[in-house]
Design a protein around this nucleic acid. Sequence first.
DNA 1: GATGAATGAGCGTTCATTCAT
DNA 2: AATGAATGAACGCTCATTCAT
Lengths: 211, 211, 211, 211
Amino acid sequence: MATAAKPGAVDKRRLILDAGVRVFARRGFHHCRVSDVADEAGVAYGLVYHYFRSKEEILNTLFLERWQIMLDAIAEIDSRELPAREKLYGVASFIIDSYRHDPDLMKVIIVEVTRAANSFGALHLDKIREAYLGIAGIVESAREQGSFKSGIPSEFAAMCFYGAIEQLLTAWIFEVLPRTDEEYEGAKGLVVEAICGGLESVQNGAASPSA
Amino acid sequence: MATAAKPGAVDKRRLILDAGVRVFARRGFHHCRVSDVADEAGVAYGLVYHYFRSKEEILNTLFLERWQIMLDAIAEIDSRELPAREKLYGVASFIIDSYRHDPDLMKVIIVEVTRAANSFGALHLDKIREAYLGIAGIVESAREQGSFKSGIPSEFAAMCFYGAIEQLLTAWIFEVLPRTDEEYEGAKGLVVEAICGGLESVQNGAASPSA
Amino acid sequence: MATAAKPGAVDKRRLILDAGVRVFARRGFHHCRVSDVADEAGVAYGLVYHYFRSKEEILNTLFLERWQIMLDAIAEIDSRELPAREKLYGVASFIIDSYRHDPDLMKVIIVEVTRAANSFGALHLDKIREAYLGIAGIVESAREQGSFKSGIPSEFAAMCFYGAIEQLLTAWIFEVLPRTDEEYEGAKGLVVEAICGGLESVQNGAASPSA
Amino acid sequence: MATAAKPGAVDKRRLILDAGVRVFARRGFHHCRVSDVADEAGVAYGLVYHYFRSKEEILNTLFLERWQIMLDAIAEIDSRELPAREKLYGVASFIIDSYRHDPDLMKVIIVEVTRAANSFGALHLDKIREAYLGIAGIVESAREQGSFKSGIPSEFAAMCFYGAIEQLLTAWIFEVLPRTDEEYEGAKGLVVEAICGGLESVQNGAASPSA
DNA sequence: GATGAATGAGCGTTCATTCAT
DNA sequence: AATGAATGAACGCTCATTCAT
């Protein structure tokens, strides 16, 4: 299983996973064949099935690998001594940087898994939910401390926050928003400001005193 | 195209479209066959191809039909003389009620089209964008009037807003959030409060004076 | 299911079954492809799957069709008013004539089903057993009437009888015995004489008076 | 070929052959993979190909090994000074005891080779025929001495005899007949009585004076 | 309009065999 | 001798689409 590659040698399993990312991102999981993955990886067709039980297992593996890293990051961020807004900035930052660092991988995870309610999304529902819960935990602490409104349930808030970020990623994926470093950096602050501070001007006043 | 059914007669084309909604919602576009749609509609296999050029055209038709209704609704809401927050409430209300009224149809549109970046999402990119632009228009007016912060670009704000709502719908589709009338009604206000008013308490103060 | 072909029209399902017989007989069930059957039938590949769920279902159908005819024949023979030896002659006659009339079909049934203990044989065990039981019924009556030895259980006797005949068929299939009409006709009498009358000369005497 | 194992060392080739017996018996030659054999033998995948050219060669080896032993046994039995009936009892005894001693091996030989007319059966036709000829030789001597009917050709008689025994073995393999020591022992006498003495009662009289 | 039989390209998966170490 | 990664041809099955009636 763990197939530790000899130092210097090529880890064919890794090669296949990375090829999967590129191919799934380019053409979509359903629109590509196993042979596309094998070709992209530069390995023989059958080797894919030596390392993975099925085409689906490749995607599952990619998702679980990366998603766990995000869950760990959220937990780590939550454990820091910071105001909620800065924690959320940390989370937004991590996710956006993940996309910036490996847009194909994030595209695959989002398009083929988290947004695919009928297939992989349903399969990994619990794992996906863990992310919401991690964010909800940050909000919950802030509500208890009084810095966040008590009127908005924390899981609800987490969904708005995560939904806004996923929409941004989708916009980059779709090329609806420009994909520049400035955009990415700016978006981190803006999304936090939009969700935490709200869209309304402060002097706008009566914005529901405490929700 | 517009095959107007005789009064009293059954419109088989409509039957097929409605069957498509149920079948696509239940099993996903890729996991169901044309024969499933025909069976669900109670019509012969070949008739599907009499009315539609392909399986994809069924989905395209369903999407365009419904999405146009939403675009019209957004435009209509925008044309009213109302504060931006209430306009956005109207938009959230319309989308959530759409889901409440026909969850299968909205599930199909969201899961199979708007969130399917590699296939139908890309095909209907412009139509999908129109919705963002409609919402952005609402935000833009508010910015010009000073009721919304000028620091957050309106298209960016629209994305956060739409993303939050889509995430809610997804949560209902996934059954991550309870599907009750109270939830639906409550969500309308909460999502607007979260995005317009922000998550932070007002007394929290320094929440970036004007972004 | 019953797909009654219009008179004069070609029944493609039948065409496929008959092609299956020829192809399975020629190359063996495992050594031929579904496309071989389709080609032999002169129909498109996919049509095979229109009529049958799988390659195996073709063989199952062939077996059940023919085997039932044999079971009915055995039952009919048993119902006649005849000495046991003549009944068994009738059974041997029917089976040998079946082979003579359609050697490919009988080859397939015997080689791929009744003698394939690990696959189809196990699946159709009960049906196969019915044949033994039918023959055993004939023997049992003769034992009760005293014309057959009581020392040999009737099911055991049925097995010897059926086994001898199947071995003959196998010999013809293998071309170990000559395949001429004289051989077939002669074999009917010989197998009955061998099993009923025994190999030993009567004057041989002590042949265990009553087993 | 004859790879003599060092005393005390494990003969991997033998290990593989024995594993083949178990695996082929359990799942059938066609339904098991070379890796199943390797796993069962507890050796590395590739080692199978070190000792055998192909999967088929394993089966061929098993068959030839065992079948020769049977041919030798038949020849040895024939060379004794005994009445034909007792010689045939010896043959029946040897075959049934072979099954009793190693049911898996005999199952494989019968199911996968001697009854597999389309594949291995055809390949080993001559070897299989040698067994018939051996039995036929016993019958032939008896016919010459007058103790067996001259009307039944000896090769035909051999087929009935062998067929009856193989049917018995198949019944045990299929679990159609009970697998107990009493059954095995009883069957030896019964099959000889059925074939040599015949099923009919002696007083039944004129049962074809000399066929 | 309506039916469903007919078509055949496409794809996931299996697995015997080879080969570098 | 021994290992197991690597290869790739082969095949069963699916299903969108066409077409004759």
